[in-house]
Each structure stands twice: as structure tokens, then as C-alpha cells.
Design a protein around this nucleic acid. Structure first.
Lengths: 195, 195
DNA sequence: GGGTAGGTATACAGATCGGTATAGTTAAGG
DNA sequence: CCTTAACTATACCGATCTGTATACCTACCC
């Protein structure tokens, strides 16, 4: 949480919000390097001057895009976990349910973090820790949930759930077959039942 | 096979080969849009004119890059499958072994097809069928292998293996934890043993 | 021995890139 | 009433982008 605060601190005026919305849509849909600031400004209905007054540089827009997406996803997931039954296995399945719903709404092209990682190679890039941070956080989450099921093999189970989840996101983005997240959920269910 | 022949047909002179090698390395490492033709030509020790005489346009270099990588991977995998025991389960594990070895050698940043898909949004792009084609081919392979184990649930098992495999490639590329492909192999083994 | 294929070297064209400069507008707040 | 923040509009900068043009070299092959 602290890391996002240090990175993502920008006066979120109405125009800035429109810029971020347009940038998020374009970056996700076409890729980061393929989208220029002129296009972002035009799509946001905003002058380039305003854009640069708010964000300073394109790199900062990228950082805000990923940090915002990360924040929204965590909040979305938290909502699903709060609404889920207390049974440990049900909470694991709630993660997959959240992912399926999220994918249907915002991400038909796979995980934005994975996609961004394909374009951002330099670990010194300010957006880099956001990408790896979310994945580490997800692994920790799965491991924590696994600890309530089989404490002695929490790490092992957590890593397996992570694999199923990431694989499902890729399969969903590349349209390899229908409803891979549902399939992953089913596999997770079988895995937990066998324990 | 037929589709690659139609797409990838370029006179592979020594200079063209050097261009392709440089482009493959740079595209994979830094992303496709982030790498310019001038850099490719310089790294290949070749004039821009030669580059354009061989490939015509940058897009064609991208196509050759992905088609070549796809071809190499399939040949690499075929070698591992040929060397594997005839037992169906062993052949499944051989795929994961091949992936682990391939990743250690050529791909520390995840699957080049998935990464390229993050940058190529347009399905009309000539490289698009190469990307989706490889994933479909892998799903078919897993399903065919699964058919020799439990014919009545081959599709189901094939999709699960695909999930584990894709998830492992992502986890490996993002460095989420150590040796995810080995972990996926282990899970595949447990899955087949339980059948 | 002349044509052709595969090169090198260099210069350039037109578009687009990220980013800046200048000038003016509008609304809120002490 | 005057300042300031948040904007619009437009023009511009230098760098970099994909792609082309011109001229020359060299080996091979019929």
C-alpha cells in the first residue's frame, strides 16, 4: 500500500480523470508503446497542455494506469471475499469468481499487468514494481487462503492455485477455449476436495 | 504447417539470417514496438537497404520472427517427445520438461507469443494467426495426449494441462517464484496419477 | 564478360513521437 | 476585485520512426 502512495500521487482533476480513463482503455486495447499522447488527449477531449500539466510525462500516465488498475482489482476482489462464505475452500473459489466477473467486464485481452510486462523490460521503470507487486500479492493471497486448508502445505497449494489462475487469464486473453476461468475454478475445487 | 508456408517465404540470405537473429533477440527482450528497424540493422551489422530488400517492411520481420520461433519450438518439442517413453503419462511430462529446458535457454521473459499478443491487437495483422495457431496447436497436443490416458475426458484433461502449462510460462516470465514449470510438471504428474 | 544477386554507404523524405511555449478563457475563493 | 487553478487553442521543437533513392562494390554464373 505504501508503495502505491509514493508512486501514484497526482491531482485528480476532472480532466486528469478523463485522460486516465482514455489512456487505460487505449493502453490495454492497443499496447502502451503503440499509443501516443496526442491520441490520448484527443480521446479524452483534453488539450495536450492539460495532459502534461497533470501528469508531467507519458511514463507517469503509464504508472497511474497500472497503479489504478491494481487498486481497483484489489478492491473488487476484497468485495467478493467479504461476500463469500467463511469456509476456506469457498474463499478460494471466490477469487476465481471475482476474476471471471472482472474479465467479463474489463479485460477481454488477458491480464493488463502481464501485457504491460511484455512492453516494459527495464526493472528500473517506475511501473515495474506495480506489476511484480500485484503478482506477489496474489501469490501471498493464495498462500494465505491455502494455509486455512492445509497449513503444512500452504506454500505448495498456493503456488498451484496461482498457476491455475494465471493460466486461466492467459487462456482467456488469447481465446484458446471458452470460459477458462470457470474451468480453472472447477479444477481448484477438485484440488481442494481431494485434500 | 500450410499456413506458415504461405506467410513465411523470404530468401534467407546470410544477411537476412543475421537480421532475423537480431530482431528476434531485440523484439523478445524489449518488445516489438520499442525496437526500430535502424537498431535491428545496426545490431545485425547490415545496411537498412539490405534489410528492406530482404523483408520489405518491418511487419514482415515480425511475422518471420514469430513464425520462426514457433517452428523452432515445435521441432524442439518433437525431439523431446520422440525421446520420451511410450507411456502416455510420460509423454505429457516430456512436454513440461521441454518447456523448462526451452525457457532456461531462450525465454526468461515468458512466452513470446503471449508477449507479442499484448502488442498486436488487430486480428487482421499477418502475425495474428501464428500466435493463436500455436496456442491452438498446444491445446490439441495436450488433448491428444490426454486421449491416450482417459479418452472419455480427453478434452477436459487437455484443457487443465493447458492451464497449468500457460500459467507456468507466465509465472516464469514474471519471476513470481522459482521453477514454476517444474512445479507445473509435478502438478500434472499428480493429476495423471489420480486418474 | 556482361548480367544479376547480394551486398555497403549515405542521404533523405514524410510522418509521428514526446514535450514545450504563448496566449487567452472561465470559475471559484478570500 | 483580484488572484489563482484548471482549463482551451494553436503553434512549434528536436528526435525518432518507417521507408526510399542514389551510387558503388563484388562475386558468381551463363
Amino acid at each position: 500500500m505504501g508503495s502505491e502512495d509514493r508512486l501514484q500521487r497526482i491531482t485528480m482533476t476532472p480532466a486528469a480523470r478523463r485522460v486516465l480513463e482514455a489512456a487505460a482503455r487505449l493502453f490495454y486495447e492497443r499496447g502502451i508503446h503503440a499509443v501516443g499522447v496526442d491520441l490520448i488527449a484527443a480521446e479524452a477531449g483534453v488539450t495536450k497542455k492539460t495532459l502534461y500539466d497533470r501528469f508531467g510525462c507519458k511514463e507517469q500516465i503509464v504508472v497511474e494506469y497500472l497503479a489504478d488498475r491494481d487498486e481497483r482489482w484489489r478492491a473488487f476482489l476484497a468485495g467478493h471475499l467479504d461476500a463469500a462464505p467463511a469456509a476456506p475452500a469457498a474463499r478460494v473459489l471466490a477469487v476465481f469468481d471475482a476474476s471471471r466477473e472482472w474479465a467479463a467486464q474489463h479485460s477481454h485481452k488477458g491480464c493488463s499487468m502481464v501485457n504491460a510486462h511484455a512492453e516494459i523490460s527495464d526493472p528500473a521503470h517506475p511501473a515495474y514494481p506495480i506489476i511484480t507487486g500485484q503478482k506477489q500479492w496474489m501469490l501471498t493471497l493464495f498462500t494465505d487462503l491455502a494455509r486455512d486448508i492445509i497449513p503444512e502445505r500452504a506454500g505448495h497449494l498456493g503456488r498451484t492455485l496461482m498457476l491455475l489462475h494465471e493460466g486461466a487469464l492467459v487462456a482467456q486473453g488469447l481465446n484458446i477455449y471458452a470460459d477458462p476461468i470457470g474451468h480453472a475454478r472447477e479444477q481448484a475445487h477438485a484440488l481442494l476436495a481431494a485434500t
